[in-house]
Structures are given as C-alpha cells and as structure tokens.
C-alpha cells in the first residue's frame, strides 16, 4: 500500500513538475485563449475589411471604428514604434466637450492636434503602452494578423479573455483595453474601445456627458478575480 502511495505521489509530482515547465515555457498547444484569439482576430480583420490600414506614423496597423472616431493601433516592430506598441487613438472633442482639461491628463494619455482622419476632428487623444523594444521578425511580409500574432507570441500576458462579454481583449495598461467578440455571430458588441474613466474624471471630464461613449459598470476579472469596475465604453456592432 505504502509503495503504491509513494508511486502515485512520485508520478504526480513528476507530472506537475513537467506540466509546470511546459506551462512556464509557454506550451502553445495549451494556450487556448492565445491561439483562439488569433483566429478570432483574423475573423475581425476580415469583417472590418478596409477599416484596417497601415499606420506609418505609429509604425504599425490601424483598425478604425465604423464611425472613425476611434482607432486601435498595434505595432509591427517594437524597436521602431515611436511612442506605444499597442494603443487607442480617440477623437478628443467629446471629452473636451464634457470638461476635459488636457493639462491634467496623466503621462500615458497624450493629447495632440493633427491632421483630421476620417470622423475624427483635429484634436486627438492617444492611450497606450510600450510592450518592449524587440525588433520583430516575420517569415514573410508583415501583415496586420502577423503583427497581432507577434503580440500573442511575445507579450501573451496583454491578451485576455473577458468571460462576461465573451470577448478577447488587448490590455493597453491602466485598465484601458481594446476588445472584440470571440464569436461575432453571437455577440452584439463586436468591437469595444474601453477606457478607464478615472484619469478623465481627474482631468475634469463629466463621464456621463461624453458624447458617443457610455459610462457603465462592467464585470471584469482583475488578476483573475471577478470584479465590477467603472468603464467608458464605445461598442460597435459590425453586422
């Protein structure tokens, strides 16, 4: 009996150690969220069509909202990204209209004025994060999906699954996200631009008065723990 128990113990310990090594070394076959998010992101890129364009200014790719009031931008080479590697560019006007004092914005939110792009005015906000300085290498020519795959491959931790909305998301730091539906056929919020409202509140914004944005409590997982947090949301149904 004792021998049996010891055998069971040793086998299990070995399995756990092997499993831990595998998990730590990022065994891709077990990373179902990372893997499936690529498939899902690919479906999103197909769905938005020409709304995905190269963004030379930011050294990457841009996915614009249907009304062009916001963009999700992801770098194709972190060694060359000027500011952030993953970011949102937003029309600043609704925030200014809701009381934004741009001088009070924190460092990770940049206000600037530039060329008008699509539905955006000339005043813009950029929210994002620098993932690294790696020089990304591609097997062929860089594509929007290949650049996303680089994020999954190199900075997997910024990709998450949001069970409450059945969304994948790219974490842009400080509670800001870009989310898209895992299965667009079953979701009415195919893409969602998500902002942590606190920085804007601190900068004088009346979050309930930001045109085109919804202020709401959202069930999320913070470090794996379920929580309800305040968010500013700009969802789109692409269908």
């Amino acid at each position: 009996m004792k021998k049996k128990l010891i055998s069971v113990l040793l086998i299990c310990a070995a399995a756990i150690v092997a499993f831990s090594f595998s998990a730590c070394s990022g065994l891709k076959s077990l990373d179902v969220v990372g893997k499936e998010s690529i498939t899902s992101f690919s479906a999103l890129l197909d769905a938005v069509g020409d709304k995905v364009t190269p963004d030379d200014t930011n050294g990457g790719w841009s996915l614009s909202a249907p009304d062009d009031t916001a963009r999700f931008i992801w770098s194709k080479d972190y060694g060359k990204s000027p500011l952030h590697d993953v970011m949102l560019e937003l029309d600043a006007q609704p925030f200014i209209g809701a009381g934004l004092d741009t001088s009070k914005l924190p460092d990770n939110i940049v206000f600037y004025e530039g060329d008008t792009m699509g539905g955006m005015g000339s005043k813009m906000l950029m929210v994002g994060t620098k993932l690294g300085n790696d020089e990304l290498k591609y097997s062929g020519n860089p594509t929007p999906l290949a650049s996303y795959e680089q994020i999954v491959s190199k900075y997997r931790d910024v990709i998450s699954y949001h069970a409450a909305l059945d969304h994948y998301g790219v974490n842009l730091g400080d509670g800001n996200l870009f989310e898209w539906a895992k299965d667009m056929s079953k979701n009415d919020k195919d893409i969602v631009f998500v902002l942590n409202p606190q920085a804007f509140i601190d900068a004088g914004v009346n979050v309930n008065a930001v045109e085109g944005w919804a202020f709401a409590k959202v069930p999320v997982d913070v470090d794996g723990k379920p929580a309800e947090v305040d968010k500013l949301l700009k969802p789109f149904d692409l269908k």
């Binding site: 069971v8 113990l9 299990c12 399995a15 756990i16 499993f19 998990a23 730590c24 077990l30 990373d31 179902v32 969220v33 997997r156 931790d157 990709i159 998450s160 699954y161 949001h162 069970a163 997982d221 470090d223 794996g224």
Partner: peptide, 22 residues
Amino acid sequence: AGLDPMAYPLIYALLELILVIP
C-alpha cells in the same frame, strides 16, 4: 500570472485536474 484562469483557462483547468488525480 501564468495561471490566470481568464488568460490561461486550459492550463488552469489541467493543473487542477492534475492536482486532483492523486
């Protein structure tokens, strides 16, 4: 972080399964 159930649900579930087997 590597066991965040929302980021790595299968790893999380399999680890639980491995722990419950003994």
